[in-house]
């Protein structure tokens, strides 16, 4: 009986992690896509200079977004297996992708009327459980400088290849 429990509990947790974790991840991606569509028109760049520096500027300020995300029990198990054989850990790529995109969105939401966000930087740090044990949890910080032009004109975000 005791041994059966020892196997059943981790198995149950794996199933729970896989089932609920997948559902939650899908819901999160739906939210990310919806919000990315809303903010699609504001270019975010790692460049430090404005593309049209002669235009009068109304406002510029630091914007920042951050999130702590974690993987589920099942993916953590897959990653632990992967560390035995080496190679790319696919089960963690969605974690980092979700974290970065969510952080960018929160940063954009701080300055919804910006015309461009310059000098985007990321900072990723691991959050460990007690005893310094890593647990597949990361914090992502995204920050940059939001700029809004004085006139409400909106320069084309990216050159349109069809215009040539």
């Amino acid at each position: 009986m005791y041994y059966a429990l020892q196997i059943l509990i981790p198995l149950g947790l794996l199933m729970l992690g896989w089932g609920v974790g997948t559902l939650l991840e899908r819901a999160h991606y739906r939210r990310i896509h919806r919000r990315e569509d809303q903010h699609h028109h504001v270019p975010v760049t790692t460049e430090r200079q404005l593309w049209n520096p002669d235009l009068p500027i109304a406002e510029s300020r630091l914007v920042r977004g951050q999130v702590v995300v974690s993987v589920d029990y099942f993916k953590r198990f897959l990653a632990a297996l992967r560390t035995l054989f080496g190679g790319e850990i696919h089960s963690y790529s969605s974690l980092l992708d979700r974290g970065r995109r969510e952080a960018i969105l929160r940063m954009r939401e701080q300055f919804p009327h910006a015309d461009v966000i310059l000098n985007l930087r990321f900072e990723t740090s691991t959050i460990s459980a007690g005893g310094g044990r890593a647990m597949g949890t990361i914090e992502v910080l995204a920050y940059g400088t939001g700029v809004r032009y004085a006139q409400a004109l909106r320069p084309p975000a990216v050159p349109d290849p069809a215009a040539d």
Partner: peptide, 19 residues
Amino acid sequence: AGLKNLVGGELRGYTELLQ
């Protein structure tokens, strides 16, 4: 956070703390 760790996703308590 330990409970949330089973199913993954955002750990709001930690996000707020760091914010």
